[in-house]
């Protein structure tokens, strides 16, 4: 689920400004979120088949959600660490 964003960040071309990479990732993250929660992808997981006792769709939504939150937390630290702006 977090594959696309992770790979994008790794394969980003080397930039003279290290912050540029994190900024691009920051732009990408909500787009990845949209992708995860909009019909083509979310419909794939539209099933009530239980996974560990929880219906697949519920597990998918909350799982993707938490993954996005973790990625954002990690990225936010990167952005504020390198950004010396008060």
């Amino acid at each position: 689920m977090d594959g696309p964003s992770g790979e994008e960040m790794e394969s980003a071309p080397p930039s003279p400004d290290p912050r540029a990479r994190w900024r691009d990732a920051a732009l990408l993250l909500p787009l990845v979120g949209l992708l995860l929660f909009l019909p083509p992808l979310i419909s794939v997981f539209f099933s009530t088949r239980p996974v560990l006792g929880v219906p697949l769709i519920v597990a998918y939504v909350f799982g993707a959600w938490l993954a996005l939150i973790c990625l954002t937390a990690w990225l936010s630290r990167r952005l504020t660490d390198t950004d010396g702006d008060p």
């Binding site: 909500p30 959600w65 939150i69 952005l79």
Partner: peptide, 20 residues
């Protein structure tokens, strides 16, 4: 059903795009 979750996913998207 799951409709209600959209109400929380929306703000989530806005906030993870906070930088912009």
């Amino acid at each position: 059903g799951l409709d209600y979750i959209a109400i929380y996913l929306g703000p989530t998207l806005t906030f993870i795009g906070w930088w912009y």
